[in-house]
């Protein structure tokens, strides 16, 4: 039971308190780049969640069974990049073969995520926090959910923004960055929620 509570707390704290985008500031590029429409933003979030969960798993396995065993922790960045890239390639092939519908939905986003800093950040945080296997998987999944939450919220705001009377100088990118800042401030409000 205690284990379960711990996992649940980890999940909530990763989604809200330590949100990858708005608190850790990882993955800003897709956050601003693909948040024009709720539909595509959600697809992006879905693909990212998927890859992040896999990454959580893979990085823990690699770190525990290869890097720590041979005392090669200094190679973690390089190793993670190789493994994640190969993994995503593999997943892409697999999905293309088994589910063309899902492949169409994720589309270009899947290979794009490979080189996203949020993914590498996730792998590095897992090793530095010394999470267990289950914790790593939950952490990866929760990070993806947090990412999806932030990007979909942003897309919703930006869709409404299309109809708003924005002053000329702030149109487009400036108002988007302002909104991102205010959203990050709002998420700071969660910081007292769970002490972790």
């Amino acid at each position: 039971m205690e284990q379960f509570t711990h996992i649940l707390l980890l999940f909530v704290s990763t989604v809200l308190v330590n949100n990858f985008i708005l608190v850790r500031f990882l993955g800003i590029c897709p956050f601003l780049g693909v948040s024009n429409q709720i539909g595509t933003a959600f697809s992006m979030g879905l693909a990212t969640t998927f890859v992040m969960t896999l990454t959580g798993m893979a990085s823990w396995l690699i770190n525990t069974f290869i890097l720590e065993k041979f005392g090669l922790q200094f190679l973690e960045t390089v190793t993670f990049i190789i493994v994640i890239a190969a993994l995503v390639q593999f997943v892409e092939m697999f999905i293309k073969k088994t589910s063309p519908v899902l492949y169409k939905a994720l589309g270009i986003f899947l290979p794009l995520i490979t080189t996203n800093c949020a993914i590498l950040g996730l792998a590095l945080i897992i090793t530095s926090e010394a999470y267990s296997f289950i914790e790593s998987v939950v952490f990866g999944f929760a990070a993806g959910v947090g990412f999806t939450l932030a990007i979909v919220l942003m897309a919703g705001l930006r869709e409404n923004l299309e109809f708003a009377d924005v002053p000329g100088v702030l149109k487009g990118v400036p108002i988007t960055l302002l909104i991102a800042g205010i959203m990050a401030l709002a998420f700071m409000g969660f910081s007292g929620l769970i002490a972790m």
């Binding site: 290869i66 890097l67 041979f70 005392g71 090669l72 190679l75 390089v78 190793t79 190789i82 493994v83 190969a86 390639q89 593999f90 092939m93």
Partner: peptide, 17 residues
């Protein structure tokens, strides 16, 4: 050790892919 690990990983992943 690092050469073998990274090289090995690369080879294994390449074959796998």
């Amino acid at each position: 050790a690092s050469l073998i690990t990274l090289g090995g990983l690369g080879v294994i992943l390449a074959i796998g892919l």
